[in-house]
Computed example of a mutant assay.
Amino acid sequence: MKFNTIMPKELVSFYQNELQLAAENLKLNDLQIAWHHLERAHIIGQKYPYEHSFVHWKMLQFGIKIKSTKEIVGQIPRLLVGGVKSFVGHIPVGNTGGANVPPLKTMEIPEDIQEILKLNA
C-alpha cells in the first residue's frame, strides 16, 4: 500500500493557482467560476491529505457563504474522511468534491489536468 503524504513540489503551483483563482472570483461574486476552480483544485489535490482536506474546508466555507444547506451538510463528512482516504490512496479519481456528486464516484479528469498530473507523476 502506498501512503501519500506530501504533494510533489511540481504540483503545488497548479494547486495554489486554482485556489487563488477561486478566491479572486469569490471576491468578484462570480460564484460559478469560483466553484469551478475549487473543483479543479480538488482534482489536483485529492491524492494528498492536507491539500484534499483544505479544499473541502474551502468548499464548506463556500457552502456557508451561499447559504447552501446541501453543500454544508455534504462537505462535513468529506472534510472529516477525505484526508484519511488520500493518505491510504483510496480516492475516487477525478471526483470534483462537491455535494452535487456522490463522494465515491470516479469521474473523467479534464485533459489539461491529466497533462499536469502526467508530467508530475
Rank of each mutant, 00 (worst) to 15 (best):
K65H: 11
E10Y: 00
L104R: 10
D112A: 09
L119T: 08
S68K: 11
L11S: 07
V101G: 00
R40L: 03
G83Q: 06
Y48H: 06
V93H: 05
K2P: 01
E51N: 05
H42Q: 15
V55A: 10
N17Y: 04
G83K: 10
F54M: 11
I33E: 14
T5M: 11
N25P: 02
N25K: 10
H36P: 00
M7N: 02
K9C: 01
G82E: 09
V12T: 12
S68W: 13
M107I: 06
K105I: 05
W35Q: 11
Q20K: 12
M107Q: 14
I72V: 15
D112N: 13
V93M: 12
S86V: 07
A34H: 01
H37W: 02
L19E: 12
E24F: 13
I116E: 02
H42M: 15
F87E: 01
I44E: 07
H56L: 08
I113Q: 05
T5L: 15
L80M: 14
P77T: 10
Q61V: 12
L80E: 00
L119P: 00
E111M: 11
S53I: 02
K105H: 03
E39R: 07
A34G: 07
V101Y: 10
F54E: 12
K65L: 13
T69Q: 06
E71T: 10
E10F: 00
T96Y: 00
Q61Y: 09
I64S: 01
V88L: 05
I33Q: 14
E51Y: 08
G45M: 05
I6H: 11
V88Q: 01
K65F: 09
L28M: 14
I44A: 05
H42L: 05
H42S: 04
N95K: 08
K9I: 15
F14I: 00
A34T: 05
V73M: 09
V84I: 15
I72L: 04
L19P: 02
F87D: 00
I6P: 00
I43L: 05
Y50N: 04
K47W: 14
